[in-house]
Amino acid sequence: MSDKIMGIIARFENTADLLSAAEKTRDAGYNKFDCHSPFPIHGMDKAMGLKRSGLGWLVGISGIIGTSSALLLQWWTSTIDYPLVISGKPLFSFQAYVPVTFALGVLLSAFTALFGMLILNGLPRLSHPVFYSDKFARFSDDGFFLSIESDDANFDPRQTAKFLESIGGKDIELLRRE
């Protein structure tokens, strides 16, 4: 099978260069690009033109589901299915149900925070075009990379490479599927 070009990456020297490169790439009309760095960079969302993550909504909804189902469970077991008077308290003595309600709300929210984040990120995934480059491994050490996918409407192997060079990119490499 012939090599298929999946995208292109370029390395930048530091966070400031990557940040300004992101702004220029955004302004040049690319939208399927990403900036890879060993740690999150302050101001990058704005530079790339990204909106705030929607994860908060997912966690908020699951927190409500967690607390209300915990309360429902305690109400149903203690008043309907197995009513038992304990220390003369009413069957639905809701004050006593607060700790478990809170704990289950937190539990479901915590699961949603991690797994929701993974789902929004499309993780786990076994492979990605950026990993076709050997140089890319530096992203988790001290490398700052900008990648543009070949699906992008403005992508053209030669033009995009030239563009990345013009904004200061180094080690420019086409990502080829072997």
Partner: peptide, 18 residues
């Protein structure tokens, strides 16, 4: 499959904060 892209970091950072 973590690749440190900012499109991942923005969800990641919010997940960590939450």
């Amino acid at each position: 499959g973590w690749r440190g892209g900012n499109r991942q970091w923005r969800h990641y950072e919010l997940a960590y904060l939450i």
